[in-house]
Design a protein around this nucleic acid. Structure first.
Lengths: 210, 210
DNA sequence: AAATAATTTAATCAATTGATTAATAAAATA
DNA sequence: TATTTTATTAATCAATTGATTAAATTATTT
């Protein structure tokens, strides 16, 4: 019953199918353990097509990695640079968006962090993470709050570490945490939803520590 | 000048050499990306010896993984079950010990968490993480504090997530964090030392959030 | 339709990888 | 010392892996 008119959602092109499959396999297994054959099978295509479209496993990987990180950076840079919101509001939105993203892609952080550990230099430089964060409105507000004495004068990175740690770690450690807490997927996700409200409060409380 | 008498530090046995090398390579690359030849070279032995002593790459891996996790669990279970210390004191000691350990073995968490994600069931069950933590004096104290109203009635796992997240994440994300903060290894470690004092304070503050 | 270009497949290659074997060396035992 | 066991090596195997090729199919252009 699939008429031409109803086909508003067209099939992904071969190239897209490969990209989607590659993202899945790379994210699950990491570059070194991922097999091009796994990717081909996942995409339902011949292995040769992978090389036809992307030249090599490595080239394909670089594209996937860049896409993943750019998507992430893009998704937060809007929030970080909204000049209409306060520091607290930014944190609220950031936490909420981030948790939603990780609920959908729980394997992403472990993948990115693992590969950044083996690749470090090139990727980080290419993304220019540092500039984007440090020159953000968020960062200016953070340092301003420190100067005004509203926040204790500790290294701003401590806050970054704490926010990211509290958001990301539960997803990275979910197998252990689910085991410890006897949690089903559903209950785990409920806890994550609670954290959207709780983490900003916790951060707020931490910021008032002498 | 190495006389028989002065040889108080004996050379590691071949088996130990392999174990040490395997721990290093597996920790750096993960199971799938690690090559037995890398391990053999790192250990300075013939590849055949690896199989002679450990049967297979997989068997070797299981041993290394079990050792790593048991070492970790053993190191914290003493603290968790010390009946002489308060909840706050336990957290202080835990944070301090943990940070010291990760300063020496910064790759450990990413390795363990990555492998737990692909293996989940067997390893976690074998270690019986859950029982050890839930039946610990620490956990009893935590739940008691909640019942006495000293701590808000949220799921105890939230605290576990926060403590672990704040401790572990900086090490997992060190490549990005060092880049963002323009940190040398030395400065990074100084921040980690600061966190020994700060994290317990932050946890304390969080516990008083309504 | 004919010709050309783009896409896809099956078969295959060379390199890598985990593992084994047979021979040798070293150590332990009788 | 002779013999047996343990440890080690070089060579090799079969399977896997990333990649290529040449042929076949499909789409596009002329």
């Amino acid at each position: 019953m699939k008429s031409k008119e109803s086909q508003t959602v067209i099939d992904p092109t071969t190239e897209e199918k490969i990209r989607i499959a590659a993202r899945k396999v790379f994210t699950q297994k990491g570059y070194g353990a991922a097999r091009t054959r796994d990717i081909a099978q996942e995409a339902g295509i011949n292995i040769a097509l992978l090389n036809y479209y992307f030249r090599s496993k490595e080239k394909l990987f670089e594209i996937i990695m860049l896409e993943s990180m750019q998507g992430f950076i893009h998704s937060i840079s809007g929030v970080l640079n909204d000049e209409q919101t306060s520091l607290q509001e930014k944190i609220q939105i950031l936490v909420s968006n981030y948790i939603d993203m990780l609920t959908i892609q729980p394997n992403l952080p472990l993948f990115v962090l693992s590969e950044l550990r083996s690749n470090p230099q090139e990727l980080i430089l290419k993304l220019n993470f540092k500039e984007k964060l440090i020159h953000s409105h968020f960062f200016v507000q953070l340092q301003q709050a420190i100067q005004e004495g509203k926040i204790p004068p500790i290294h701003p990175l401590h806050f970054i570490m704490n926010i990211m740690g509290m958001i990301i770690f539960p997803f990275i450690g979910s197998p252990i945490l689910k085991n410890i807490g006897d949690l089903e997927e559903k209950t785990f996700n409920e806890l994550m939803q609670q954290r959207k409200i709780l983490i900003p409060k916790w951060i707020e409380a931490m910021m008032n520590v002498k």
